[in-house]
Amino acid sequence: MALDFSIILRFQEALALGLWTTVKLTLICVVLGCSLGFFIGLARTSRSTLLRAVSSVYVEFFRGTPVLVQLFWIFFCLPLILGVELSNLTSGVIALTLYMGAITSETFRASLKSIGPEQLDACVALGLPRRVQVTNVILPQAVLRAIPTLLSNCVSLFKESALVSAVGMADLMFVGQNISNNTARPIEVLTVVALIYFLIAFPLTRAVTLVERRVLAKLAI
């Protein structure tokens, strides 16, 4: 069987549109998910038993169930419970944000825990008020330490986002699948789709190493 990759050129625009949806969805969920994750991470290390319990249940639930099931639940069950129609994009954003929040909260929790008690001793010895301790000493160090893992979390999210094609969102995967079905050229189309995912994800995974070597080695944190 002869392979003909030139058919991809006929669907350039459709693929580009699908990729844009994938990237947009990923970016929105990275921002929302990381913010949610930071506060959940704080809640999990908080002194309040209630906060700790609620956040743990959330994190463990989302880490312990397949993302596909979470997606289906939010696409099909949530509108029934809320009694409102949710657009595909809204449902996708909610589902992937909750997923991202759960995995990044673990990242933030680990980086918060890795800040030694001697840093707090120094804060007290310098008379820094609590607010300054958090915003100028703890938060920046926690974020810096979290960056490599957060980047990996973002790559995971980018790849997992392909699951939204299963609920009919026109992302890169969805478009690719449609083209593949209509042209009966799965090898060419799906190979190219895989390549596109790879070309975006791979530099990001390399960036993790770079950040670790350059920034974190310089600060030794």
């Binding site: 120094a122 820094l128 160090q141």
Partner: peptide, 25 residues
């Protein structure tokens, strides 16, 4: 107070370490 183990803030430069408390406190 100065401690046995280095307790400088690793994410701040030397001068930033010195001026943090005077500016904020």
């Amino acid at each position: 107070m100065v401690f046995q183990h280095y307790t400088l803030f690793p994410h701040l430069s030397v001068i930033q370490n010195l001026i943090l408390a005077p500016c904020k406190v």
